[in-house]
Write a protein that binds this DNA or RNA. Structure first.
Lengths: 205, 205
DNA sequence: GTCTATAAGATGATAGAC
DNA sequence: GTCTATCATCTTATAGAC
């Protein structure tokens, strides 16, 4: 990410235009859906002709890739700043609630991060990195918090079922809480299965 | 669905062509992906010109709709024929395993049934009916099997987490069993939560 | 009634002038 | 870097042969 020191000329302008295009792309994705995003709409919103976008993004998929990177980077930063309780069970609740809240707050962002809604689009390794980083740090923090030693299977199960809650929420009750309100109960089940001491019950009503 | 009795002339031919087109559509979906399906490819596979397809399906979405109906109808029939153990916990394992096996066996079918991969496509009420039927019958059978009285929340949680297993399997380990092999453990957790007697442990290794 | 021929409108993408 | 053409592809619709 660090260009050579002499190259700070108008690279800032380029970066600004890139950001502007990305902002426009998110707005269009919210208005027309992630799959309904078109380069025409993005260009119009940013005050350009469609072909001019290709100066900043090599393809439509490259634009999706940058959005994917942006979304996971934000998740990574905010999860790094998340303060977790010392108690392992409470920490598990906090982690799950944070992930679900983030995923339920924004549909196109969730679709891009956690589903494969765009045909033929696969995130590049560079854009995939923040998600791996967030996952590894979270697991590491939990392990260090003095909980049990999580196996790969434990993490897999946790990720899968919490992701299921989010998917069901978006699919069957968008904007509601029919499924997300079951999260506390689910996390307690998982905590029981992991043998975490039941210090406090779930924080959910 | 029942035409007037006199109308059995060449309606069979029409139905046969419809089936032929549907078969071709599934083949194309398997080859090019569900979202990558084009009417051109379907027409070519069936030996037609693209516009001729509109004689049998009003639009591409109507074709997707018929595929959706077909997929859920097959699930409905096969789940109706499924023999479940008398023991509630074992029955829960059987139901979950059946659903997961069905969903993991065919990617485009799963995407069409359980995800919203096609922009702007929403199944018609008629095509949605088989899925509701299958769900209601399954819940009814389980209730009648002498288990506990399942609440709506119980069913919601079950559907969400088992769906999460399937989604994670397809997303992170297509063709493998990294997540599906955790199903037995998950179902036992749910059964414990429901207070089902632990007659036999899960049937999975 | 069914299919073929053909075109309209939209999209992602490229080439070349300025 | 941005623009004006321009192309290929796909969905959708209409006109007309058999």
């Amino acid at each position: 990410m660090l260009g050579s020191p002499t190259e700070t000329w108008q690279d800032r302008r380029r970066a600004a235009v890139r950001r502007e295009i990305l902002d426009a792309a998110w707005e269009v994705a919210h208005r027309d859906g992630l799959g309904g995003l078109t380069l025409r709409a993005v260009a119009e919103r940013v005050g350009m002709r469609p072909p001019s976008l290709y100066t900043h993004f090599a393809s439509k998929h490259a634009l999706y890739d940058a959005m994917f990177f942006q979304a996971w980077s934000e998740f990574d930063e905010r999860s790094a700043a998340l303060e977790l309780p010392a108690d392992p069970r409470a920490a598990l609740h906090g982690i799950a609630r944070f992930y679900v809240d983030f995923a339920v707050a924004d549909l196109p962002r969730h679709q891009l991060m956690d589903q494969r809604v765009i045909p033929d689009f696969t995130p590049s390794p560079e854009s995939y990195a923040p998600s791996v980083r967030a996952m590894e740090r979270t697991v590491g923090r939990f392990r260090a918090a003095g909980g049990v030693a999580l196996t790969e299977a434990d993490v897999d199960l946790f990720v899968a079922v919490v992701g299921g809650i989010v998917a069901a929420q978006w699919s069957n009750d968008p904007g509601g809480d029919r499924y997300t309100r079951l999260l506390g109960r689910l996390v307690d089940m998982l905590a029981d299965d992991l043998g975490l001491a039941t210090v406090t019950s779930g924080e959910d009503p």
